[in-house]
Amino acid sequence: MMSVSGKVFEQYTQDVYNWAYRLLGHHHDALDVVQEVFLRWDRQCHREMPRQPRGWLRRVTLNRVVDFLRGRQSSLVATNETQEPSSMKVSQAEAVDRAVLRADIQNALDRLTEQQRSVLIAKVYDEMSFARIAEELSLAVPTVKTHYLRAVRVVRDRLQRRWAKEES
């Protein structure tokens, strides 16, 4: 029989996979992250079940993604985008563009605090309201807005370097 914590995790597995996949761009890497997050979740639940499971899982997933990227270091650009699911096949040029974009976003995420990362991903990819994010992260709404603005600026500053290069 699966434990209660296992059942809760099952409910959010797709979310964990989605966050990891979108930021890593690679199915198997995303699965590795899902597995690690599940192990951490299981350990956490032995102590205490998080009150906001989805918020807890998002935060831990993003941390694992960043750790994963730090471990992987370079060689992100050309290698991983060729392994998109068949339903998303794109041209080589598009794949390289996406890989560069993803690398920029990964770099920016690495510069954010844990809370800024969570707020950014919750807003941009999960399309949650500031109020809902605040509730999930147990923060005040103005704090969430400040985190979001700060996070967007970090991403923007990173992307602007590329935009400037493309223009020149």
């Binding site: 996979y17 998109e84 976003i105 923007r156």
Partner: peptide
């Protein structure tokens, strides 16, 4: 920048 982030394909 936000728009660019959304351009990353979902799984």
């Amino acid at each position: 920048a936000v728009q660019s982030m959304r351009e990353l394909p979902g799984p």
